[in-house]
Design a protein around this nucleic acid. Structure first.
Length: 472
RNA sequence: UCCCGAGUAGCGCAGUGGUAGCGCAGGUGACUGUUAAUCACUUGGUCGGUGGUUCGAAUCCACUCUCGGGAGCCA
């Protein structure tokens, strides 16, 4: 369909640049709006996703297909335009294209196409997730999400961290970090049983010879590589089968998990803080037009919030200090505060949104409410855990210094009703050349949410998976 | 999973017992170097589903489905 001998295709973002004036170019994209003038020409605004802005194309009625095709072009139609870039006399753009030819790849029937020039709710757009990347908001989210991912890799690569791919399918029912999705090839209508009468399923007959699930975290495997290669990070999809119906939970989401050998909790916090600040400043610097859009249409505070955080120092607070602050806050909490409780959303929100109005790193939680692998402190009742809390989203990072002492790790497993034998390979890391080490997990979607100001996590991932919904 | 709330035209909404309305989009026409263009006219819906109360239900009741917000779980 596309001719082979022709001008190289220029992106809209470049066609909008002042420096492009005078060039003859070819651009391709989708019509965002068409305005006709009885003066004998039409304006077409074309977008190709390279920027949130459109390029204005002047299509003269002298074009051979003007009446037959161009005047029928609606929103969503796909076109190729060849023409000269000229200064635009109108306000709102520096350049426009005076079309020499306008070729139509495909039209979009305005009576059928669901995206028209009008306000459309995010809720409705979720039902047409295959078309929503064509909107300003979702295009901007996609570009910001991409920039965050680029920045993540650059942050770790520039510090000598190795990118490690941990498995998606896992046989270890690790961490107790929530419900897992079962992976099986067994015939669900005819499950093999361990004996004639028993109800226990015989997973030895399953594909892997044992029960397997989708991973809830790459951390334990990540530790294997950190205790050999020192600094590593994982970045991949993660799955939780929790029946969570909130604006900040997905059944399938992406997580970044750095793991550092020879690192304690302080080093962990330093990396986490520098990491977030780098992501935020990269987005501010490299996605300024998209961020202006979010500030204008989604949340007027996003740019100032991110700018302030980049320059700020995160508040670092022990759990015990946080409890004291909450107890003496004078706030009326639905859930009463006392040492030993798990902090509720309302407590975290008070700290980040009211008390400090910035990211807060909480550390040294009671051992009883945290995972077995977190390092037990000398007081015997707290562990070297850390949660990074941000306004509105809450927990964006969860991490800890890991327990590197074999005997203590084993006893903590037993205390949490875990069988150390199931974790033999994880314990081997402590048996042979154990080292202090630490790491954390950053939720990608929560980061995109925080950066863009988008209210619902389902709108910052291309195709959200949530309870009862796995369309597209 | 629990607690609220909502499901009425393609989309966003109003309508709390008497035979369905507005805005936008769409269509037609007018006008214009326009820029979410403007103006006039106009097409379009058995009011999520099932059952019930009633002479009569979008409106009241029961059940159910779907979606949204909050909570819990966490990233």
């Amino acid at each position: 369909m596309l001719e082979t001998k022709k001008l190289p295709r220029m992106k809209v973002v470049d066609a909008r640049r002042q420096e492009s004036i005078g060039k003859t170019v070819r651009i391709c994209g989708w019509v965002r709006t068409r305005r006709d003038s009885k003066g004998g020409f039409s304006f077409l605004e074309i977008n190709d996703g390279s920027t949130i802005k459109n390029i204005q194309v002047l299509a003269d009625s002298a074009l051979p297909n003007y009446a037959s095709e161009i005047l029928t072009l609606g929103i969503g139609g796909s076109v190729e335009v060849v023409g000269d870039i000229v200064p635009s006399p109108g306000a709102g753009q520096a350049t426009e294209i005076k079309a020499a030819t306008v070729r139509i790849f495909g039209t979009a029937d305005a009576t059928q196409y669901p995206l028209q020039k009008k306000g459309t709710s995010f809720e409705f757009l979720r039902s047409i997730a295959h078309l929503r990347p064509r909107t300003n908001t979702f295009g901007a989210v996609a570009r910001v999400r991409n920039e965050i991912c680029r920045s993540i890799h650059h942050f770790y690569q520039s510090r000598g961290f190795l990118y490690v791919h941990t498995p998606i399918i896992t046989a270890s029912d690790c961490e107790g970090a929530g419900e897992m999705f079962r992976v099986t090839t067994l015939d669900l209508m005819n499950l093999p049983r361990k004996d004639e009468t028993g109800s226990a399923i015989d997973f030895e007959k399953d594909f892997f010879g044992k029960a397997t699930n989708l991973t809830v975290s790459g951390q334990l495997e990540g530790e294997c590589f950190a205790t050999a290669l020192t600094d590593i990070y994982t970045f991949g999809p993660t799955f939780r089968a929790e029946n969570s119906n909130t604006t900040r939970h997905l059944a399938e989401f992406w997580m970044i998990e750095p793991e550092m050998a020879f690192c304690d909790l302080e080093g962990n916090m330093d990396i986490a803080e520098e990491f977030l600040k780098t992501l935020f400043s990269d987005v501010l610097n490299n996605c300024s037009q998209d961020m202006e859009f979010f500030a204008e249409r989604i949340d007027s505070t996003v740019i100032e919030t991110l700018s302030a955080i980049v320059k700020s120092k995160f508040v670092r607070l022990s759990y015990t200090e946080a409890i004291k602050i909450l107890e003496s806050s004078g706030e009326r909490f639905e859930f009463p505060v006392s040492w030993g409780i798990d902090l509720q959303s309302e407590h975290e929100r008070y700290l980040t949104e009211k008390k400090f109005k910035c990211p807060v790193i909480l550390t040294d939680y009671p051992a009883d409410i945290k995972a077995f692998y977190m390092r037990l402190s000398d007081d015997g009742r707290t562990v070297r855990a850390m949660d990074v809390l941000v306004p509105k989203i809450g927990e964006i990072i969860g991490g800890s210094q890991r327990e590197e002492r074999l005997d203590i790790l084993e006893s903590r497993m037993k205390a949490q009703q875990l069988n150390p034998a199931d974790y033999w390979w994880y314990l081997d890391l402590r048996r042979y050349g154990t080292v202090p080490h630490a790491g954390f997990g950053l939720g990608l979607e929560r980061t995109v949410q925080f950066v863009t100001g988008m209210g619902n996590i389902r709108d910052v991932i291309p195709f959200p998976r949530t309870p009862g919904s796995a369309d597209f």
